[in-house]
């Protein structure tokens, strides 16, 4: 499988990373280099093998239903690049 320019553009758009047209050929070549190298995995027989999920084996631990957090409006907003009162602000979104 190798990527064409349109796919690189689509993936960059899915990832919300602006790529200038002039950078597309370089990026395409780099990504294809990496993907081509990854292709060697195809040689491994993985039929019937359970995919590993997560780094550890244990089951999910559950916490008690108690309010232990929140009430830190100031700290939540402190690093915001733009805000309006107690809201974060972004360019207007049309639904």
């Amino acid at each position: 499988m190798s990527l064409d320019t349109a796919t690189v553009r689509r993936v960059a758009s899915l990832a919300r990373i602006r790529v200038e047209d002039g950078d597309l050929p370089r990026l395409e070549a780099e990504l294809n280099g990496i993907l081509g190298w990854i292709e060697q995995l195809r040689a491994v027989d993985t039929q019937g093998i359970e995919p590993m999920a997560g780094g550890g084996a244990q089951a999910l631990r559950m916490r008690r239903d108690e309010v232990t957090d929140g009430g830190i409006q100031g700290e939540i907003l402190a690093n915001a690049p733009d805000r309006a009162g107690a809201f974060f602000a972004v360019p207007k979104v049309v639904e």
Binding site: D82, A84, F87, F88, A89, V90, P91, K92, V93, V94, E95
Partner: peptide
């Protein structure tokens, strides 16, 4: 979306 002419509030 209706609090400001050019911004959405979160």
């Amino acid at each position: 979306h209706d609090q400001h002419p050019s911004k959405s509030f979160i």
